[in-house]
């Protein structure tokens, strides 16, 4: 009974953290981009515009919910929830900090430290593709369909790169559990990025593509497809896609921090603040890239994935595997 309560509490805390981080990621992105583009950005609602995300959320909540006449209704209504579900579920295996003692019980700061955490995370993020494909297809609009096709092709090929980048990390630490990987980095005394620089770069590229962020934001390329797979969505359904995208950004950043930069461990006072700091760094990087780079074209994206990143990823795995075996 006690365990169940603790688990429930941890899940709630996680959802609270992620759902708070998400709106502030949008605020952060808008402010940072404005700063880079000689603009002011949202600064009217609350101090420094801090209440802007809430105002935006309220606005979307009160928008009319339109279902196009040609839509496949059930899928059209259901698709955005898949996006949000997959995004939230993926965050469950992220370790936020060391085990703490609350009310006489040892509470690890993670919802579920599974032995196969990484596999689970990959699986959940693959599930997100269905949201894009279903959403685009069921809208009954050609632009949405094109967006959905792009999304499917892109996410499937970059999932592969993501997987390959992670295999290197798994080989180094000998575990699929995120908790173990952090512990292993603490034991080694340095971060994985030093051993897996190629894997790190591959991971970053794949993460950008996986979350549909610039310069890989083809599925929603505004200038070509108007808005891509979510063209026909309005109000909160539309917002669900966005919430999912920003939660995914948070998750991939947290995963990058956990796998490559030691997670919640730091040179002093290990704890969640280190993780958040590292996540912030990655988010800043994402925004920076978005403000700077033009968008790749569909075929160029595919070529990059299959003819450059894939061989590089395989080579990285072979070299890592040989080194691991040789050093044992």
């Amino acid at each position: 009974m006690n365990d169940l309560l603790i688990n429930l509490a941890r899940s709630l805390v996680l959802v609270a953290i992620v759902m708070t981080a998400m709106p502030y990621t949008t605020w952060f992105e808008r402010r940072v981009m404005s700063w880079m583009q000689c603009r002011v950005g949202p600064n009217r609602v609350g101090i420094f515009g801090l209440l802007q995300p809430l105002a935006d959320g309220l606005k979307l909540l009160f928008k009319e919910d339109i279902t196009p006449a040609k839509a496949e209704r059930v899928l059209f209504w259901f698709a955005p929830t898949i996006a949000l579900f997959a995004a939230l579920a993926a965050a469950a295996v992220l370790p936020f900090g060391p085990t703490v003692h609350i009310a006489g019980a040892d509470v690890p700061m993670v919802v579920a430290d599974m032995p196969v955490g990484l596999l689970y995370l990959l699986g959940m993020s693959s599930l997100g593709v269905y949201a894009l494909v279903f959403g685009g297809w069921s809208s009954g609009s050609k632009y949405s369909l094109l967006g959905a096709l792009r999304a499917a092709a892109q996410v499937v090929s970059y999932e592969l790169i993501l997987g390959l980048a992670l295999v290197g990390v798994v080989l180094v630490h000998g575990s699929l559990s995120l908790g173990d990987i952090v512990a292993s980095q603490q034991k080694m005394g340095f971060w994985t990025i030093l051993l897996q620089p190629v894997g790190f770069v591959l991971y970053l590229l794949a993460a950008c593509a996986e979350t549909n962020r610039a310069p890989f934001d083809l599925p929603e390329a505004e200038t070509e497809l108007v808005a891509g797979y979510h063209t026909e969505y309005t109000g909160m359904r539309f917002a669900l896609y966005f919430i999912a995208e920003y939660i995914n950004m948070f998750t991939v950043s947290a995963l990058a921090a956990t796998l490559f930069l030691g997670g919640w461990s730091g040179p002093f006072w290990p704890g969640p603040h280190w993780l958040l700091l590292k996540v912030g760094l990655f988010l800043f990087l994402f925004v920076w890239i978005r403000a700077t780079l033009p968008r790749l074209r569909y075929d160029q994206l595919m070529r990059l994935s299959w003819s450059t990143l894939l061989p590089l990823g395989l080579l990285n795995i072979v070299i890592t595997a040989v080194a691991v075996v040789a050093l044992q």
Binding site: Q37, R290, P294
Partner: peptide, 8 residues
């Protein structure tokens, strides 16, 4: 530049 995605 904006049309091909470079916003700034």
């Amino acid at each position: 530049a904006m049309d091909i995605g470079a916003l700034s």
